[in-house]
């Protein structure tokens, strides 16, 4: 079968809703895009552990400490599932981490912002996980089997992340004036980065059409962003917080909110490496990897000795 025919069969499969599995034929562009997406997504999960991990040792009570630990642990788990999904396409996790550490691979821009107060932990769960869930529920319907299955598992785990974040914000908003100010300040700082993390408008990007057809991308960034804003604004109002966008308006005709101008220069600048925490996040990951090297090697050496013993016996 020549490639044109294979491609036709591949697209027919996707059209009929059958998942593509690792050993199936797939166009090179499909494979490349998926490895890129899955690894970027995996990197985002493990880098995402850092800003929230920043507050584990300062959580204000034992209940919050347990919830935050469990939440950050989940993110590590998500990274693990996603690296595994990427590995089904023949890349090694060692290689993928190398790409992260050398700056060749990207991760979500949002994690380059600092968590300055406890309210930031609420804001991240509410806004960042909230935005991520919009994206991930769409991706769970994607065409690549391992990615879609990882997403299904991740979405199930995500639902508590979003709620615990909102609960923190609600508690603060109903608390002392200082606490309420803390919550509003966190919303002010995290709102725009959360709106931006869903990515720039991709309506006229040339790849978009093909990726949608292949069900690698399920919806446009703008569509997901609209849904995120539509759902989140009333949640903010409910707890008496103000979304920091003076142009935000509900459009009765469309039933959607229209938002103010997004500062895409900032977005691209952070992606390029010029966010407040890019250097720190990357250094933390690199240090963890460096400090873990002798540990990983020790475990391999121990295992090799046991294999040798068995051979002799």
């Amino acid at each position: 079968m020549e490639d044109a025919k294979k491609l036709e069969a591949f697209e027919a499969k996707i059209n009929s809703g059958v998942k593509i599995e690792p050993k199936d034929w797939m166009p090179e562009a499909y494979r490349k895009q998926l490895v890129r997406m899955m690894s970027q997504h995996a990197h985002s999960e493990i880098v995402g552990m850092l800003p929230e991990g920043n507050w584990i040792t300062r959580a204000p009570n034992l209940r919050r400490k347990a919830i935050l630990l469990a939440k950050v642990q989940d993110e590590g788990g998500h990274g693990l599932y996603l690296y595994s999904a990427a590995e089904t396409l023949g890349v090694d996790r060692t290689e993928l981490l190398e790409q992260l550490h050398t700056g060749k691979a990207k991760y979500s821009s949002i994690f380059n912002y600092p968590t300055l107060t406890w309210a930031d932990i609420g804001a991240i769960g509410w806004l960042v996980d909230g935005a991520a869930i919009m994206n991930q529920t769409a991706l769970a319907r994607g065409s690549y089997g391992p990615y879609s299955r990882a997403m299904v598992r991740i979405c199930k785990e995500e639902s508590f992340h979003n709620r615990q974040g909102y609960e923190i914000m609600m508690q603060l908003a109903q608390g002392t004036p200082e606490q309420k100010a803390m919550a509003q300040d966190a919303l002010n700082r995290w709102w725009w980065p959360a709106v931006m993390m869903l990515g720039p408008s991709d309506d006229n990007s040339p790849n978009s059409e093909q990726l949608m057809r292949w069900k690698v991308k399920m919806e446009s960034n703008d569509a997901i962003r609209e849904r995120f804003i539509d759902r989140t604004v009333p949640q903010a109002e409910f707890i008496g917080l103000t979304v920091p966008d003076k142009d935000l308006k509900f459009d009765e005709e469309t039933g959607h909110y229209t938002h103010g101008k997004i500062n895409w220069d900032e977005f691209f600048d952070v992606i390029k490496g010029n966010g407040p925490c890019n250097a720190k996040r990357l250094k933390d990951r690199i240090d963890a990897d460096k400090n873990g090297k002798w540990v990983r090697e020790a475990a391999v050496a121990y295992a090799a000795k046991r294999v040798k013993e068995k051979e002799i016996a």
Binding site: S84, E87, A150, E297, V300, Y302
Partner: peptide
């Protein structure tokens, strides 16, 4: 050479009497 350890496939039995089901994978030295 430093590695992330070999990959193992994980099968979990959720309840007694039902078959193990593929859950995902992990990396481990042994």
């Amino acid at each position: 050479t430093d590695t992330q350890w070999p990959v193992w496939e994980v099968f979990v039995q959720a309840n007694p009497g039902i078959p193990h089901k593929h859950a995902g994978s992990v990396h481990a030295p042994d």
